[in-house]
């Protein structure tokens, strides 16, 4: 396993060197205009994804991870709206595309798998038909050939007896099987980018490992890029090449996985990593980050994490609650949004 990982690591770095980014998200902001006020679900997220790379996006529930993914595909429902930012996919701005062009991108060049596989499949259609639908929309061709291709796809994602399973309805499948179907649907058109939005959260631990292996294997076979959205630091450590940490709608830290785990800069990331239970280590209580995520309608004026930040108190920083810090490169390839480091640079 480690061996395989290392190989991928080097090859993706090599790819990165001679390729412009596949996806470039800059300063993305998606707000929901509700009666209670403006919910800033995504408020200043930037990252890039290169070919063949697994980009992890990690953060607590409600920090805007999924909304970031949905914004990339422009699948934000009212009253939500992308208010600013750029999403460049292969150099084209997805935000400027017509609805029709966008429809042609979805499922073909960028596909998504979701958290709840069973409820993400339409209960009234056979899984085969839902799979064939993707092929029909994006590839065309003969009905019979599409069906055969669908069976092949199911086989590829490791569904036993795919010829029979193709006639199943979603309720006749387990969560793990359903997620494999979702992955098969995502892979149907060999997309350049797969967005996996908490793909294993609803699954048993053993199934989780299988699904993650499957995603990794497909990434290797097809050289596609993956955006892996999760709240699970363990999954990030295992899967991602490079990680973005999000907090309350904004990215707060970005680094290659190893660097992030070895040397987390942002107090929030430090808290996240400290809260991972370690096997064999007995603690009275798990480490927790005190407090809760701020209300996305009524955001604190300065750094969003300031009210919960221990480091701020320890270092006696006053700026945190007044002005929002900027994303700066604190170390080569390691950016962070925190006054702790911005202060160092400026002073």
């Amino acid at each position: 396993m480690t061996d395989k990982n290392d190989n991928n690591g080097t090859s993706s770095v090599m790819q990165a060197a001679d390729n412009s980014p596949l996806l470039q998200v800059s300063d993305l902001r998606t707000y929901f205009f509700t009666r209670e006020g403006t919910v800033k679900a995504v408020d200043g997220v930037s990252f890039t994804v290169r070919k063949g790379e697994v980009r992890g996006i990690v953060g607590e529930s409600g920090c805007g991870k999924s909304m970031t993914a949905m914004s990339i595909l422009r699948l934000i429902d009212k009253p939500g709206r992308i208010v600013s930012g750029e999403v460049l996919f292969k150099g084209q701005n997805l935000r400027k595309m017509s609805r029709r062009e966008m429809t042609a991108i979805r499922g073909k060049h960028i596909s998504v798998i979701f958290q709840e596989p069973r409820s993400s499949l339409n209960p009234v259609f056979k899984v085969g038909n839902q799979l064939v639908e993707v092929l029909r929309i994006h590839k065309g061709g003969k009905r019979k050939a599409q069906r055969e291709e669908a069976v092949e796809l199911l086989r590829e994602v490791g569904i036993p007896d795919p010829g029979r399973r193709i006639s199943n309805y979603p309720h006749e499948m387990s969560g793990g099987m359903a997620q494999r179907v979702m992955i098969a649907m995502g892979m149907a058109c060999a997309p350049d980018l797969l967005i996996a939005d908490e793909p294993t959260t609803a699954l048993d631990v053993t199934i989780q490992a299988q699904v993650l292996d499957l995603i990794r294997q497909l990434r290797d076979d097809h050289r596609m890029a993956v955006i892996l959205i999760t709240h699970d630091m363990g999954i990030v450590a295992e899967m991602a090449d490079i990680v973005t940490v999000m907090y309350a709608g904004a990215s707060v830290e970005e680094a290659e996985t190893e660097a992030l785990f070895e040397n987390p800069l942002h107090p929030y990331t430090q808290g996240l990593i400290a809260s991972i239970p370690v096997m064999g280590e007995v603690k009275e209580r798990l480490d927790v980050i005190p407090g809760t995520v701020p209300d996305l309608i009524d955001m604190p004026p300065g750094c969003r994490f300031a009210p919960r930040c221990r480091a701020r108190v320890e270092h006696g920083l006053t700026q945190c609650e007044i002005e929002e810090p900027h994303m700066i490169e604190a170390e080569p390839g390691h950016s962070v949004r925190c006054w702790l480091y911005e202060g160092e640079k400026t002073s």
Partner: peptide
Amino acid sequence: LGMNYVRTARAKGVRE
């Protein structure tokens, strides 16, 4: 329309 499978359909590139 708020169901997950509707979101899936959109994400698949199904016309509105």
